[in-house]
Computed example of a mutant assay.
Amino acid sequence: MDLLAVRTFVMVAEAGQFQVAAAGLAVSQQAVSKRVAALEKDLGVPLFTRTARGARLTVDGLAFLPHARALLDAEERAAASVRPGRRPLRVDVIGRRTAVAGLLRGFHRAHPDVDLDVVILFDVDADAAANAIRSGEIDASFRCVTVPGRDLPEGIEAMPVLDEPLQLFTGPAHEFAAAPAVAPAQLAGHRIWMPGNLPGTEWSAYYDALAAAFGLTIDAVGPNFGVEGLLDTIAESSTVATFLSERTPLVRPAVHGLRRVPLRDPTPVYPHSLLWHAGNPHPALTALRAHLSSRPSGRLDTEVWTPPWALRSHPRHGRTRS
């Protein structure tokens, strides 16, 4: 259905005159008449009775009017869902169970009036996310960016927001299950199973660098059935472990019999930054940046490790090893 003709019909119905509707639409009276006639032909019924005093709705016109208004309301809602400045703030995260997703939940609790869309651009790195920001597909993204982040597309800015510590997850029969802490170097030769690490993604590059730095074996072979499927396998194995964030929420860790073992000397951290376009006018983007900037620093009183190419969230805190 031609929504322009529907809008013209509603204008005539409310004005009661074709001439007044034409003035409101900034078109000629002839154009208004043609639009209404086309709509009547499409519907197969007359919508107005023309009189010397103007236009009066027929019985069919009266029946169609509330539906016509609903169509125009739906059109406006559809446009607002994608129109910059009016649509929800669209923010990309690596996963909905990650720490940065938790940051967005905190932002939403602090700003419940802000419409927010949480999206996932699968299998992309910071450059691809930056291009999606530049094109307007998304407003912001949480990604791991390189030092000093100057190879991002023009206009893209990056703000470090969170260093996310990793932990070793094992089953109860694993060698390190009862250890109070483990140094990454102690894991040399041990199998760390991470089937979600897809080549070309930023997290794959991060774990490749971690493996190279400490002699680890990161095994990405096998089907990825999600976190719960991964932990089922880990819980039953005496040789296989995995890395997860200490902030990763687990539904039933006690059922798995899993052990969370802190990593120390150094603690590997995954450095998250917020990316956005400097020219983005969305009002909620400023609120998100202010909220993230006001958070506590999350200082770690231990030596930390990040890849040499990664931009850290709080480089002044702790001792850094690359």
Results as ranks from 00 to 15, higher is better:
Pro307Lys: 07
Arg50His: 05
Val227Pro: 15
Arg259Gln: 11
His314Pro: 05
Leu275His: 02
Val82Pro: 09
Val304Asn: 11
Ala26His: 07
Ile94Trp: 12
Ala132Trp: 04
Gly54Ala: 00
Gly215Ser: 04
Arg259Gly: 05
Pro266Trp: 03
Asp208Ser: 08
Ser204Ala: 13
His67Ile: 12
Ala74Tyr: 04
Gly24Arg: 10
Ser141Trp: 05
Leu62Asp: 15
Gly106Cys: 10
Phe176Met: 12
Val145Ser: 05
Asp208Pro: 00
Glu175His: 13
Met1Glu: 10
Ala290Val: 06
Ala254Trp: 13
Arg109Lys: 12
Ala278Glu: 15
Gln167Gly: 12
Cys144Asn: 13
Leu231Ser: 04
Ala78Leu: 05
Pro88Asn: 01
Phe107Ala: 00
Ala70His: 09
Ser135Arg: 07
Ser294Ile: 03
Pro268Arg: 02
His277Ala: 09
Val261Tyr: 09
Ala213Asn: 11
Leu230Arg: 11
Gly279Glu: 00
Asp60Trp: 01
Asp42Ser: 10
His256Pro: 12
Pro249Asp: 07
Asp117Glu: 12
Asp115Lys: 06
Arg77Val: 02
Gly229Trp: 03
Ser33His: 10
Val251Lys: 15
Pro308Ala: 11
Ala183His: 08
Ala220Gly: 11
Ala70Gln: 09
Leu72Asp: 05
Ala80Trp: 09
Leu285Glu: 02
Ala31Gly: 00
Ser238Arg: 09
Leu274Lys: 02
Leu72Tyr: 09
Val45Asn: 01
Leu62Ser: 14
Leu288Phe: 02
Val114Tyr: 04
Asp2Asn: 12
Gln19Ala: 12
Ala101Gly: 03
Gly16Asp: 00
Thr49Arg: 08
Val118Thr: 13
Phe142Tyr: 06
Thr233Arg: 15
Thr239Asp: 04
Trp193Leu: 13
Ala173Phe: 08
Ile218Val: 02
Ala110Cys: 03
Ala158Cys: 04
Asp219Lys: 08
Thr242Arg: 11
Arg77Lys: 02
